[in-house]
């Protein structure tokens, strides 16, 4: 017998209730068979002394305070492999998202927080804080350089806000900010394929750290900015390179 018996209070778990509310197909978290398929195939198993099964049991037992003391929710990548192998299709990543959301915003990991805030401050929604003016400059500077150095591609384009393009293409900030030449291979492929595409002056950033931060308003703002611009330009398809 263990000396430390866990006392279960009568209060309902906030996390459990939240996740129950969004389960599809009349799913039920109580259906967890504790088989361990989730944990045995989870790369985060063992980090911070936890694994998906333990984490779910904590929620089922209403141990909300203990859940908020561990940083494990920031070590799960919400990759959904646990759902894929779960015989009852229990959505542990959604539980993780709600736990992240329950952290006071300012106490969430600084790097993720900073990237989200940069995106919210720039009209391009760039997690690295690149302005649309700088983005425009870099894209056109690199394009001109390649049109000249590689004459086979003298007609290649990398348009920003081209009305009526078929595809709205987003762009991870990493390339324009730190390695602009890496943007070119994709431009070449699109050019050779005869694809009509455009970047946008608004919502061009491909990354969405507000999603990872579990900042619902910020996440929505970024998605909204990109989709509004896509509609504005009359593009039929939003092409996500992330």
């Amino acid at each position: 017998m263990s000396a430390d018996v866990i006392k279960i209070g009568g209060k309902a778990s906030r996390f459990l209730d939240k996740v129950k509310g969004i389960l599809p197909d009349n799913g039920n978290l109580d259906l967890c068979l504790t088989c361990g398929m989730c944990s045995s195939g989870c790369p985060a198993t063992g980090l911070a002394g936890l694994d998906p099964r333990k984490f779910l049991r904590m929620a089922v037992l209403g141990l909300d305070d203990e859940i908020l003391k561990t940083k494990w929710a920031w070590m799960c990548t919400m990759c959904q492999r646990c759902i894929y192998v779960c015989p009852m299709k229990i959505d542990i990543p959604q539980l993780i998202f709600n736990v992240r959301n329950a952290w006071p915003r300012a106490e969430r990991p600084k790097g993720i927080l900073g990237s989200c805030d940069f995106a919210l401050k720039t009209e391009g929604c760039s997690a690295m804080g690149a302005t649309s003016e700088d983005f425009d400059f870099v894209v056109n500077d690199v394009l001109e350089e390649y049109q000249e150095a590689q004459p086979e591609f003298k007609d290649m384009q990398a348009p920003i806000d081209k009305q009526g393009a078929e595809f709205f293409l987003n762009q991870n900030s990493r390339e324009p900010v730190t390695e602009p030449d890496e943007m070119v291979p994709l431009w070449k492929i699109l050019h050779l394929a005869g694809v009509s595409w455009t970047y946008g002056s608004k919502g061009w950033g491909g990354e969405n750290y507000c999603l990872f931060l579990a900042d619902n308003d910020g996440w929505k703002h970024i998605v909204q900015t990109a989709t509004d611009q896509t509609h504005q330009l009359g593009c039929r398809t939003y092409l996500n390179t992330e």
Binding site: W74, T77, M78, R81, Y209
Partner: peptide, 18 residues
């Protein structure tokens, strides 16, 4: 394929400081 392991770069882990 669908059964692949995540590499650990997703979900913001790269920027989490851990």
């Amino acid at each position: 394929r669908s059964n692949n392991y995540c590499c650990g770069g997703g979900g913001g882990f790269l920027q989490s400081g851990h």
